[in-house]
Design a protein around this nucleic acid. Structure first.
Lengths: 195, 195, 195, 195
DNA sequence: AATGAATGAGCATTCATTCAT
DNA sequence: TATGAATGAATGCTCATTCAT
């Protein structure tokens, strides 16, 4: 009965929202679904987050700050040794397509929602920018090339997820290589070179 | 009471659905919103389309058959004279972004929504494939290059829609050129003239 | 397109209604469900049967006239050789409970519907009376005993179907025997003795 | 706006459901009909009872806890003085059939509806078992006889409700007597006096 | 005689949010 | 501070029946 003392409740609600958005999509988010997933009374979700948008934004930001997610997660993966940038991006993409896709789905879910909902646009832009920044460090600080790479990757991922085509590493690598040209900066990954 | 014979009813409902999807997004579709927009009784929408998905798909297919849309529209635009493929694609993209963005938004909304909703996947795949086919005709039938071009374009458009950045024709053209390399086939696709 | 010449259509609709009532219950009957099951246009069902009740009654009457059903079906089964009346009734009940229960279900479905719907009461009464008549022939024309037997059987069937209890032939036979007493008329089964 | 605090709301909804089920039958229950009968907003019924089945079951259980109903009511009635068990049961049945039949109808509606609807089966089985237990106390604990008596009574009541026949006390008493045989236990169940 | 189209009423449910406590 | 109760609006969908052809 009585309210239990539960200082992490806010965080637990956010985590539940992330889980739901990943599993069922943003459309599956509701005060009720989150309350159930977080095992928290309904009123608690509206108490901590006045509106659903507020909760959704908090959830998305938490994901993008998470070391596993777009920004930092990719940074780690790309920093690893082995092959040129195209090779490492290809490996990364292959992994994303093969393993549990819920994180990828969540990312595109966010893009989708942001297309129509003003309030989410900044968060989506942050995700994109974070990813561009990571890539930029590997191409000698060339922002245009980084943006093109990210665009190509997003477009390829969408194609892979939408059509049934199998992931073809050679084709992917070849496309990335054309964009990269000779701009690959082998040792990069730390606070990159700005240009 | 109301008019009982109305042979274009079905078409009018589809058109209303297209308008709503364009204006408010796919999420704005409901039997009620469509009925209101089409000025038709609620029961009429469920009579002609057993489920909302059925209506949505009919609407999306009608959009893709529209001469304005991806397949046909792009074919015409790319066939026109003036510059190489990269140049023409850049102009096309510039146009899309400049004018009313609702059609572009609808396209990406479909792609992203299809990631989650099985039923939309075939239509989305059709849109993608149609676009790839059009582009392929201009790169000497090289499917891999066509797919990469479409991916790059999709990614760039998503970036434009989500971030506030302005459309930069030079940057876009440069990206496209890198993918195209020397594969541009001047006379392809239609009686186009290259420069 | 055009209307096929289909003189059995009316009958096919009734049969479809019987199938649906047996499988999904009377509540599952609708012009639509019947039309689909009979593979007939929706308008056809309302053309042949002005209201749903009309169709339902036609269906129930057809079942009760069917040699397989309550009246005649039981007559045949009870007429067979082997043991006294209690024994044969017990075997019959065991069979009903064990095999496909849809016919039993349909019978009780009818009782249920008739409890509240005036129009169905005569049909339900006919079923009951037909059954009583059959049994009566086996107890020397004693109507009261026949009614009690039918009542006991209905009550036992309901208990068996509702609770998970296993069918206990000895218990059932014993109950029937108490009602029958010495009234069993071995050779009966044909146009019985009236009294 | 409307009254916002109303602690008996839940109970009032259940009572409304009972009234509707009694008057119009189980099929007459809908969130709307209950809300109207209880003079409560529609959302209130779904707030307190997530599904209609939940509400229906709550209502049926409340009926069976009611001192008027099968379990308790019959226990009291059978405990009273006057005649043997058959006599008292006959009187009881006569009373049930003579007075407002809506409660009897509701009982058999539940039994028959439960044949189809899994969710109702437990409640129906409870009703049946409670009745059997009451009767069992009067036949020296003989469960088989109690079950047969209840079955006979159920079958007879169904016949009475469905056919137009008048209640014939002699016939009913005779049937009950045959099942009971000499098992009547005068002083059983409660401080009843047999004659 | 037959049927596709149409429609208004109804259904169970879900929901974001508000509010009294 | 926290939350159970409450509610009005909306959702997708089903339906019996009517009607124009």
């Amino acid at each position: 009965m009585g309210r239990r003392y539960d200082p992490d409740r806010r965080e637990r609600i956010i985590d539940a929202a992330i889980r739901i958005a990943g599993d069922q999509g943003i459309a599956g988010l509701s005060h009720r679904s989150v309350a159930a997933e977080a095992d928290v009374p309904l009123g608690s979700t509206t108490y901590h987050f006045a509106t659903l948008d507020e909760l959704l934004i908090a959830a998305l930001r938490k994901v993008s700050d998470d070391p596993q997610s777009a920004g930092t997660g990719w940074a780690t993966a790309l920093a690893g040794p082995g092959g040129g940038l195209a090779e490492r991006l290809t490996a990364l993409l292959g992994g994303l397509v093969a393993e549990d896709r819920s994180r990828v789905r969540l990312e595109y879910e966010l893009y989708l929602a942001a297309l129509r909902r003003e309030a989410l646009r900044p968060v989506a832009a942050e995700w994109l920018d974070a990813f561009v920044e990571v890539v930029r460090a590997h191409v000698g600080g060339d922002a245009a090339t980084a943006r093109a790479l990210v665009a190509l990757i997003d477009g390829l991922l969408i194609q892979l997820l939408l059509t049934g085509r199998a992931f073809d590493p050679d084709e992917v690598r070849e496309g990335l290589l054309r964009i990269i040209g000779g701009r690959d900066v082998p040792g990069a990954g730390a606070p990159g070179v700005s240009g």
